[in-house]
């Protein structure tokens, strides 16, 4: 008897977790579907003047992509290079303190990254090319935020490399650089890419740090020194006073973020599975 009740209780909590996700998707779609149907391509073609009933998001979609892509371009190669370096080149004693540093970086709240960006990075860029609060500032802060996790997934992927190959490489006196370039990285590339794609999703979805350093002007990202506004920052900025269609437009941008996240997750899985296939 007791067992059956316990079973139901556990099933219920599992259903609750599933319901949260289902609830998010249903709510976002339910609230926005008529609006999206009514607006159609206007959502991309128009400008963003919510007061006048114009809800064109193209510039902010571009802003989100621009900030996240540049962050990824900065962080991913650095993360892969550092992970490989820590495993194959660095002196052994350095590994633990370095990993502790990356754990610290991963644990710092995004609002603190944003604060640092606001206090240090933005004035520094401003001294170079005003106004400082810009696409570049956002990408730099995001790059620092996604670097530690990208590094840790790369490290985990490298740990899966069979030691046999490394022994063979050593016995043939091959350089570590050569082994890395020809054997280790090609083999682990899908697993690394799978992890990096997830970090790209995180960069796209990040709100606070970007909100604090990007300047939040709604415009197409032209130069890296100009301010941009991302979809996430837009929700955070306008949700508190938005009403009517304006509010629904913000929910629509939330739905878009959610869909992009799911697509990236699916891509990450595909890449990850291919890795298992060849291993």
């Amino acid at each position: 008897m007791a067992d059956r009740w316990l079973h139901r209780l556990l099933w219920l909590s599992a259903m609750l977790a599933a319901l949260v996700l289902g609830g998010i998707v249903v709510l976002l779609i339910g609230r926005t579907a008529p609006f999206i149907a009514q607006q159609g391509m206007e959502l991309l073609a128009r400008q963003w003047y919510p007061g006048d009933g114009e809800f064109g998001m193209a510039a902010m979609i571009a802003g989100s992509l621009a900030v996240a892509v540049l962050a990824l371009v900065l962080a991913a190669p650095l993360a892969v290079a550092l992970a490989a370096w820590l495993r194959y080149f660095a002196p052994g004693w350095l590994r633990r303190p370095a990993l502790a540093l990356f754990a610290l970086m991963a644990g710092i709240p995004s609002v603190v990254y944003g604060l640092w960006g606001l206090l240090v990075l933005v004035p520094w860029i401003n001294g170079w090319v005003p106004p400082g609060a810009s696409w570049l500032a956002g990408s730099l802060v995001l790059a620092l935020m996604i670097l530690p996790l990208a590094l840790l997934v790369t490290d985990a992927a490298l740990a899966q490399v069979p030691p046999d190959w490394l022994h063979a490489g050593a016995a043939l006196a091959l350089s570590r650089v050569g082994m890395l370039r020809r054997v280790v990285l090609p083999h682990t590339a899908p697993a690394i890419a799978s992890g990096v794609v997830l970090q790209f999703g995180r960069a796209l979805g990040e709100t606070m740090a970007v909100l604090m350093v990007c300047g939040n002007v709604v415009q197409w990202p032209g130069s890296v020194f100009e301010p941009v506004r991302t979809l996430t920052a837009n929700i955070a900025l306008e949700m508190s006073y938005a009403a009517g269609d304006h509010r629904i437009a913000l929910f629509a941008s939330g739905l878009l973020l959610m869909l992009v996240t799911m697509a990236l997750l699916a891509l990450s899985w595909r890449l990850g599975r291919r890795h298992h296939g060849t291993a």
Binding site: I24, L28, G205, T232, I235, M239, F251, G254, M258
Partner: peptide, 22 residues
């Protein structure tokens, strides 16, 4: 269930904010 958890883990926090609000 693994799929649900992975999607939830990857969901941007601002979306949880929207959901919580509504």
């Amino acid at each position: 269930l693994g799929f649900v958890l992975d999607v939830l883990a990857a969901t941007p926090s601002i979306v949880f904010g929207l959901f919580g609000y509504q």
